[in-house]
Amino acid sequence: MTTNVLADTGVLTGRSLRHILRSPDTIITTAVTPIALMLLFVYVFGGAIDTGSKESYVDYMLPGILLITIASGVAYTAYRLFLDMQGGIFERFQSMPISRPSVLWAHVLTSLAANLASIAIIIGVALIMGFRTGASVAAWLAVTGILVLFTLALTWIAVIAGLSAKTVDGASAFSYPLIFLPFISSAFVPTDSMPGPVAWFAENQPVTSIVNTIRALFAQEPVGNEIWVALGWLIGILVVAYAFAVARYRKKVS
């Protein structure tokens, strides 16, 4: 049965990608809010924000916007997983001789594809708004790798939510705190402008190290220790979320 994992995952991923292609609004909706935020921060608030660096504000806040995009995008994964379980097609798959992890992996890979598409749209808009980077191919690969890890980590959290939810609204509610987290980080303003306890939280939560790393990569500055802190958070969250999601799934399909 294990030999079929790849083939089954491929077939099921094809199915959920088709869902996205038939309702491209999910990708557009995912991109609209971050674009609005980007316009708001660059053209309304940005002028009054002193980031203490030479780079333009759009360069400064793009990493945070990318994380917000992913955090709102994964909500659709929870939503699609929940609808599968509601509709009975999940049970059909479970009663068929297909490898069981494939059902989840198909949703995870689809989430990755959809979020990378949204990210591409956001970077395109940012370029129009004046975002510039001299980042090397290696730096771009590093940024992509970090965004992929971030998407996978949040997607497995979305899988837990999708498997556990009792209602459609409940399936996507988990994403609200995740979308909010970049606001209390170095994504939009430097953390040293915040009062003590808030600054402490902002400096020690995962988003700040991830944002700082991506920002440094785009600005061709040394990433220092931040990249290891960021990778530690990303891999830690990914492993824990994956373990919980798989345990939840096992319980569900026992």
Partner: peptide, 28 residues
């Protein structure tokens, strides 16, 4: 076996043909 549950376990987004092809592929 095959199971036909109480509620039609079909994929609304896909066409009828695509639903059948999907299951045929999953049955290898």
């Amino acid at each position: 076996i095959s199971l036909t549950g109480q509620f039609a376990a079909v994929d609304d987004v896909l066409t009828g043909r695509e639903n059948l092809v999907l299951v045929a592929k999953l049955r290898h």
